[in-house]
Design a protein around this nucleic acid. Structure first.
Lengths: 195, 195
DNA sequence: AACTTTATAGACCGATCATTCTGTAATTTG
DNA sequence: CAAATTACAGAATGATCGGTCTATAAAGTT
């Protein structure tokens, strides 16, 4: 449907840009470190509209996590294809993980693995969300492993968690400032050593 | 030297217990989430003494990180021996990683991989500290790999980062609430898969 | 033009933040 | 005892926090 005619004063912000901006602020500053003021400024959105749209900071954060998953993780998941041999797909997957975690110096690492993981310490809602996001990637990896003829020693579900752990470890290392080229070599080595 | 005679009013707190308590608070609540009030209460230390001893919150956090490394990571590093075959040592290393990350439900995961990693987003001092701590583990793993007769495909320095990434990934998964038994199986699979 | 709807800017709220300061208690030294 | 030293409890500080509220502006509807 092509946008019903809207009454009232027109929005001064863009809803999609706003979520993208919020994602960046949380990604760079962490959940507690991102103040509502800073978020409003980056989102080009007045406080009242922010609360109207998202309810509170918690739910804005969850919306940002969802936006991040849709725009960053879904494409990454598609690298797993299957497009080529398992090893090739894993290499391109790790390669994209490194790209995601290093491409913007102001948002190093992974929003989920660093920021949500920290916030999960106190907030049960965030802890459950972290678990869901982690499980989703592992399910995807397990599926890909199962589709492959190659049969490593351990069950696919276990190996999937190994690979997911490597991916998350790479993003942590990126947050500490490790250069992309080094991390790419690590990703390649993991894909090869693993099979 | 056996403690010079001290003038002045005696301390009402214990210096070692205090750092241990601070570590727990940061570990559970994150850097921003840990208020000075909460820290003082847990450390059984008055504000004035805390500032006298550590200067400010930043440096208290760094002191807690150091305490954590000495009490948690050094013993973990010793699992790498060499005590047995490389695969056996790696298995016991991952096993201890999982134990560390799951043993206390109030402090899930790893202080460095979750809390320091989040805080590294804004604070350059913390980012450098994160890099140092990560590099130290990788150096230790690389040394252990070099001491082994087994020669995997990739260079020891690269493979060391793969293994360190797995370890960190395991602690992240623990923070999301994954049960220890599952993670132990993942650690065993990783030790076998990468050799 | 009058009414309804939506979004705006920005003041306001109480709570909490990290940090500093003040005055006092408890100890050793001389 | 007096002086020096160290640590204490807790008030005070100014800033900032997340969240709410009020008054107004800008649009469609009738």
């Amino acid at each position: 449907m092509p946008e019903q005619t809207r009454r009232g004063r027109p929005r001064g912000y863009d809803a999609t840009d706003a979520l993208e901006a919020a994602t960046s602020v949380f990604w760079a500053k962490g959940y507690e470190g991102a103040s509502i003021d800073a978020l409003c400024r980056a989102m080009n959105m007045p406080r009242a509209s922010l609360y109207q749209l998202f309810g509170d900071k918690q739910h804005l954060f969850l919306a940002a996590i969802d936006h991040y998953a849709r725009t960053r993780l879904d494409p990454l998941s598609q690298c797993l294809g299957p497009l080529g041999a398992l090893e090739e797909d894993l290499e391109s997957f790790f390669d994209q993980v490194v790209t995601l975690a290093t491409q913007d110096p102001s948002t190093p690492g992974c929003l989920i693995s660093s920021v949500l993981s920290d916030a999960a310490g106190t907030n049960p809602l965030f802890k459950a969300e972290l678990d869901r996001r982690f499980a989703a990637l592992e399910r995807r990896l397990s599926d890909r492993l199962s589709q492959s003829a190659e049969r490593p020693g351990a069950p696919a579900e276990v190996l999937a968690v190994v690979l997911a752990s490597v991916a998350r470890g790479l993003t942590l290392r990126a947050r500490s400032g490790a250069p992309a080229t080094e991390l790419r070599a690590v990703g390649r080595a993991a894909a090869r050593a693993f099979l």
